[in-house]
Design a protein around this nucleic acid. Structure first.
Lengths: 132, 132
DNA sequence: TCTTGAGCTTCCAGTGGCTGGAACCCCTAT
DNA sequence: ATAGGGGTTCCAGCCACTGGAAGCTCAAGA
């Protein structure tokens, strides 16, 4: 099938699929007219990458996962290691964002938000107020 | 003072400060020898940006905040609007990451992680298992 | 048959927010 | 005189795409 169909079935834009081929993540056959030609298995792989990306795996991690995916004899521990590492990263990001949320939320709460120029948010950012 | 001192005092690398000048976010005077010359007020502004960036504001938002910061007559409501919008974004990101965490966490939990090739994580990504 | 339009191809450039490196200048201390 | 640790500029690269131009191919309609 052509790239458009593969795109629709995998949930990835054609541009992205071409990009993935460009960086050697997923290659496709070519039809006689030069068009890329995708098999069902190719689409499967594309969707695999799409899911992995949407779960926060980097393209490089997708490359690893793909090779583990294709390796019928891989140890599940290898996959779990990557996923666990990623889980840690996600947790760290959540923690960081939660911290930010708290700080910014506090600033927003204490700002009366009217026409007067006095603003705790600006003060907080400029460091004139002791942050706690 | 030179860019190095300004960097140390603001918590921003010299490269980043030059970059900010490049994109017109913060400009600096020049000394006779061509070196950038920063006043305490400049450092204050740099730190302001540093804090805003670390709170998740984009550089463009920093530009807005800076102009609000410099405008002694601005309404605190204007600042609050930007901060509240950002708060919403942070909340959305947290929610998204929490969703990811749950999904990936579930996959990791159900993966026994040993030498056998059977792996729910790979299965989950490849879509052979119904996601719920 | 011709034309139209959609879809495909390649390639180049831009996004955000830096960061690294090269090549060079300046200033101070030894 | 020289060595070093600043500073300066500019160019390139990172990640993961995305937009756009110019040109090809294909199927359907007048």
């Amino acid at each position: 099938m052509n790239i458009g169909s593969a795109a629709r079935r995998s949930g990835l834009p054609p541009k992205t699929i071409r990009y993935y081929e460009d960086i050697g993540l997923l290659r496709a056959d070519r039809a006689a007219n030069g068009y890329r030609d995708y098999s069902d298995e190719d689409v499967h792989r594309l969707r695999f990458v799409q899911r992995a990306r949407s779960l926060g795996f980097s393209v490089e991690e997708c490359r690893q996962l793909l090779s583990l995916y294709s390796d019928r004899d891989r140890a599940s521990a290898d996959v779990k290691a990557i996923a666990t590492e990623k889980l840690g990263e996600i947790d760290r990001k959540i923690a960081e964002l939660t911290g930010l949320r708290e700080m910014l939320g506090h600033l927003v709460e204490t700002c009366h938000g009217d026409a007067r120029p006095d603003c705790p948010i600006i003060d907080g950012l400029s460091g004139t107020t002791t942050s706690h």
